[in-house]
């Protein structure tokens, strides 16, 4: 990401860029449209009024209401359960896939394998959702198995490419000499992975896991079609409430979600920086 950003501030041209006409105005406009809606949502979650457009007084009543709402609590628990499980499984799978595509030597079909892993990112989610719905219906009927496992499985699958990207990036940047040095110092392949590859790969794994967690927590379309009765996740619940108009209660829940995400991103950022 730093590399990507650095092209926007070349060492000699940064002042010139700032002097470009409209640069400052455009930047503020983009930032405004990105963050103003969120700011409004956060502000009105503290409003002591049922209206989401007219400010009266500061209050935490909607937070209290949200936390006391059994439906919200239940759906939040399901969301966290699904997201955590999907994160763990997809990160493990993505790590193995990244190892196979960067450390497995050159083999026939490697590029195809990488493309196949990343392809789901390009397929419209609604298509994946309908396909998964149809496929899982068949499987459910054949096996007779029901339960939240199917939803976790669906989330795991679409989280894999998100977790895979940062892990693979980290692995390709990492010199294979470290692993050669470990093998040279009598480490078996497993010991090499355990003591050298994995610790050095950890920032990538953390970033991948975080992406997977956020993507899973946020998912609506696939969840909407795959989730069985009683498996309402938080986004699905919010969506249901919105149909009856935006309530400050929904604002409060959304603010908690934002807070959770921002905390995670910040935490990962500092963890990675400490490692460096």
């Amino acid at each position: 990401m730093d590399k990507l950003l650095s092209i926007f501030r070349p060492s000699t041209g940064s002042r010139e860029l700032r002097r470009q006409p409209l640069f400052t105005g455009m930047s503020w406009l983009v930032l405004l449209f990105l963050y103003a809606p969120i700011a409004v949502l956060v502000v009105f979650s503290f409003n002591d009024n049922r209206s989401v457009v007219r400010w009266t007084e500061f209050s935490l009543r909607w937070y209290a209401a949200a936390l006391e709402n059994d439906d919200i609590r239940r759906s939040a628990m399901i969301s966290i359960q699904v997201a955590l499980s999907a994160t763990v499984f997809s990160t493990i799978i993505a790590t193995m896939a990244a190892l196979a595509t960067t450390r497995g030597g050159v083999y026939r079909g490697r590029s195809a394998a990488i493309a196949l892993i990343n392809q789901p990112l390009m397929i419209p989610e609604i298509v994946t959702a309908i396909a998964t719905l149809a496929f899982f219906s068949i499987l459910r009927q054949l096996t007779g198995v029901t339960g939240i496992g199917w939803l976790i499985l669906a989330h795991t699958v679409f989280c894999v490419p998100f977790a895979y990207m940062p892990i693979r990036a980290r692995l390709s940047d990492m010199s294979v000499t470290y692993e050669a040095a470990a093998a040279d110092l009598y480490a078996t392949p497993w010991q090499t992975f355990r003591h050298v590859t994995l610790p050095l790969l950890m920032p990538g794994v953390m970033a991948g896991a975080m992406l997977a967690f956020v993507v899973s927590l946020d998912d609506v379309i696939i969840t909407l079609l795959v989730a069985g009765p009683g498996e309402t996740t938080l986004p699905i619940y919010i969506l249901g409430q919105i149909r009856r108009g935006v309530t400050p209660e929904v604002n409060a829940v959304s603010t908690i979600l934002i807070g959770l995400t921002v905390t995670m991103v910040t935490l990962t950022f500092f963890l990675q920086r400490k490692r460096k």
Binding site: T177, A180, A181, A183, D184, A187
Partner: peptide, 18 residues
């Protein structure tokens, strides 16, 4: 490599940074 009683000093040292 891990089964040979031979050790290497690498060109860029390859010390484990962690």
């Amino acid at each position: 490599p891990n089964n040979r009683p031979v050790n290497t000093v690498f060109q860029n040292y390859a010390l484990f940074p962690h």
